[in-house]
Each structure stands twice: as C-alpha cells, then as structure tokens.
Design a binder for these strands. Structure first.
Length: 316
RNA sequence: GGACGGGUGGGUGAGUGGCUAAAACCAGCAGACUGUAAAUCUGCCGCUCCUUGCGGGCUACGGAGGUUCGAAUCCUCCCCCGUCCA
C-alpha cells in the first residue's frame, strides 16, 4: 500500500523496549531497509548538551539516517508530554511528505502513549499554581494536598496515593483550571493518532542479559567522556536543579565532581538506577497493546531480520 | 596472655524476657501512572501446607548446653571479628 502522508495506510513503525535493549541499532537497521527516518521518543534526549548519559546516537553512528526529536530544548526549559506530541506530529507529517517511513524508538512510555493515544483535553501546567501547591505541601506535609484534593475531586483522590504529590498536584491543577474533575476530562476522550498502520516491535532481552548490558554500557559511557561532559555542563553554569540534571547519572557525577571523588564511586549507583529504570520501562511496555515481541537485543542480526520481516508483513 | 566492644533475615542495622518471622532503610520482585515520567507512587519480600485466614506447621538472631510457663534478649562454655593494654 502506498497511502500519502496522513492518509490511512501510511506506515509507522515503533521500536520499543527498555534502555540498552538496542532500540537505536534496530531502528537504524530498519531505516536502511525500509527507506526510513528515525523519530526518537525519549524524554531525556530532547535536552541539548546532555548527550552521553542520555544515550543519544552520535551523528557518526547514525549511518546517514536522519534522527528527529532530539535536542529540542535548553536545559533550563521544562518539556512535557503534550509538547512532545505536538512536535512529533509535525515531524511525522514532514517525513510523510518526503515519502519516507517514520520509525519511532520509544523508551518513554508516557510520550509514546501521548503520541499514539493522544492526551485528554486538559489544561496545560501552570507554574504559579504549582508553586503555591508545593509550598503548601512543604508547610503542612504531603498528605495535606491529598486532603485538599479529596474535597475538590473525590474520585481522583481515591485513585491517587496520598503521598504521590506530583499526581495530586496535576489533579488539583486540572480541577482548578478546568473547573472539572480529572476523571470527567479523561472520559471525554483523547485525540488518538489516526491515519497510520502501526507496527509495534518490542525488544525483550532476557533480564539477566539486559542487566549485564546496562552495567557495561554505563562503564562505556564513562569511558567515552561522560564525566568531562558533566564538567562542561557545570562550567556552562547550568544549575544543579535544572531538569536534565535529574536524569540518571548526571546528579551522581555532578556530586562526584563537587566532592572530588572518582567517577568509579558513582558507577555502581548509576548502574543500579539504570537497572531499576529499565524495570519500570518493562512494566509499562508490558501492557502496551499489539506489540510483536522479539526476545533479544536490537543489534542482533537475527532480531533485525525478524523485525524487518514483521514490518514488511504488516505492510501487506 | 589481659581488658573491653561486637557477631541479628540478601546488605546496613534496631531490638535487652512474652505484643518478634523479628523495626527502619537498601537491594530484589511485582504493580500503578493522560502534560517534570530516567519523575512519582503502591504492594510483596524465611520455607511450606491448605478450607487463602488478622489460618496451620516448620526453620531462624555465631555454636553447644542451661535457666524459665516463655529467650534474639538471662547464665555457662566454645568459636570468630574489632579496638586497646602487655
């Protein structure tokens, strides 16, 4: 089939899986075989200057395949799932106009869902309101906000754990700004992505093998200059509370530099956080519908072969 | 050789007679998550049986004995670790 951009029939390939499962390699391989371009779906790679620790594919390894949705904002900016969706839709259209196949590499489940299933028609975040709520929480304890939510929106309060402050704040925010409870807004539907035949390929290496890869990859990142990168970011004056400094490894390495200890001290911790993160990704993706699971790493030629076959079969 | 301090579940570490399968934290496993998501939060976490219950049995606080209705908690001896004195 050869539908034009945006029309039913255009093909979209999604490669999803936990960190270090080889999504990038698989996506590039597929792109070479299927005249594709890569769309990154990763909440950390949208930040400029944070390259090594976020696992960006260096241009020299992209093999001429265009990579989109990377380096979109500066470290001090706040980026959201809604913003991602907006930008991704644009890129999706452009790639379609070029007659190329979009290949999405997804590590951030929420962003993937925001793009594919859409977001409800809820108000965007309001920093002022959130600042006020956070101050209240600091003053009266985290459960205070939950009690407040219970008064405003019983249903949401029942659903959200009393100490899950970020989600409580969002619920209060929506209730306040929209004047309606979250549940109601969610039930009113979301704008899902239309016009694409979507082929989802999931990478699912054995847990032990994945963890071993993660450990090795963290070492490799350090070897390729991660510490120097962090030193440079600090020198640029990027504050420690900037969003991307919350990403795995960056704060560890930063405090390493501050305390003068070696990076090796931080490596174990970084590996551990990364493993825990991978586990959460796995949990999220497990319930993703219609995924064709591949039990291996994306850089395995056999996995690439079966992925290619699956992608082509979905085209028929 | 002598004087103290200490040996607790995968790790750190509370607990000094019953409320203790043993706090808390970490790790691990499972899960939730519609706008900061590499975030945030929840559950489980000795083994085992079933009629899956604030259920039963077994094992467990270095080792062996002992005191007691009852011991991780008290006593005796032994082993190991740390610090200090010779």
């Amino acid at each position: 089939m050869s539908g034009g951009p945006g029309q039913a029939g255009a093909r979209l390939i999604v490669v999803l899986g936990p960190t270090s499962s080889g999504k990038s390699a698989l996506a590039i391989g597929l792109a070479e075989r299927l005249a594709g371009e890569v769309l990154v779906c990763d909440s950390t790679q949208v930040y400029r200057h944070f390259d090594i620790g976020t696992g960006k594919v260096p241009v020299t390894k992209q093999r001429g395949i265009p990579h989109h949705l990377v380096d979109l904002v500066e470290p001090h900016e706040v980026f959201t799932a809604g913003e991602y969706r907006k930008r991704a839709l644009e890129v999706l259209r452009e790639v379609g106009l070029r007659g190329r196949t979009p290949i999405l590499t997804a590590g951030t489940g929420l962003y993937l869902r925001a793009l594919l299933e859409g977001l409800a028609d809820a108000p965007e975040r309001s920093e002022r309101l959130r600042d006020r709520l956070r101050k209240k929480a600091e003053l009266n304890g985290p459960e205070h906000l939950h009690r407040l939510l219970a008064r405003l929106d019983k249903e949401a309060a029942n659903r959200i754990a009393p100490r899950d402050t970020p989600k409580i704040i969002r619920a209060i925010e929506i209730r306040t700004l929209a004047g309606k409870p979250v549940g109601e807004i969610h039930r009113s539907g979301r704008k899902r992505l239309e016009g694409y035949a979507i082929c989802k390929l999931g990478l699912e290496p054995a847990r032990g093998a994945l963890y071993a890869r993660i450990n090795a990859r963290v070492e490799a990142m350090i070897a390729s200059g991660w510490v120097e990168e962090v030193r440079g970011l600090v020198a640029q004056g990027i504050p420690a509370d900037a969003k991307p400094f919350q990403f795995i490894g960056y704060s560890d390495l930063r405090s390493c530099l501050d305390s003068g200890s070696t990076a090796q001290d931080a490596v174990k911790r970084i590996q551990q956080s990364t493993r825990q993160f991978a586990k959460r990704q796995i949990t999220w993706f497990r319930k993703e519908p219609d995924v064709k699971w591949l039990s291996g790493f994306g850089d395995d030629p056999e996995v690439l072969a079966s992925a290619t076959a699956l992608a082509q079969a979905s085209d028929a």
